[in-house]
Amino acid sequence: MLSNFLSYIVQGTGVTIAVTLIALPFGLLIGLLLALLYNYGNRWVARSAGIYSLLMRGVPPIVLLFILYFILSGRLINLSPFWAGSLSLGLVSSAYQMEILRGALAAVGAGQMTAARAIGLTRLQAIRYVILPQAIRLAIPPWSNEASIVLKDSSLVYALGVPEILRRAQQLSATTGQPFLAFGAAALIYFCLVFLTNRALDYLAEKTKLPTQPV
């Protein structure tokens, strides 16, 4: 009984991880594109990216999730709740990731661009070989925070009927009559996932840190 109980929730854990692993990179891709457009695009492109960010960050994620879900699983596009939910979460996250990345790009500073252009690199080469490698390092700590937010926000697709951890816990609590145990197990799993994510990204930040002490 206990092993059934656990394996049922563990299947939900797989769904939670899958939703996160779709939403996070999808949000990163769009967020990075928007951050680059915001920092290096012409005035109108930059302004549009800024407005996108303001709108997306001004509305609760669950509200956006519902709007996007009904668009992505509507008549024009018809995705499953799993895909519509994951991609919607990714879009929500893209605005926050854009803010992180554009801050990091700005923090690298205009001087690096000048120096890169001065040896004859093109603008795109300068962004690719000089600005981005530095910006990404700067972005890792705030980005790991966003990663655990997306992991936690993946619980919102519960509302779309996707069988992730919370949905499983609810079904279990109904079938076993042990709600405290069911939700307690779910909480424990979330806690471990968030903890492991943070640890992994701390490790990544440590690994990519540039040396400052003479060797």
């Binding site: 816990a169 042990q178 909480a187 979330y190 903890f195």
Partner: peptide, 23 residues
């Protein structure tokens, strides 16, 4: 601090709403 920052808000809502009655 660690428990409440390490789990989703919705999880906490459900714990209080559906889980506590179990106790």
């Amino acid at each position: 601090i660690e428990l409440f920052r390490g789990t989703p808000l919705l999880m906490q809502v459900f714990m209080l709403y559906y889980g506590l009655p179990g106790l």
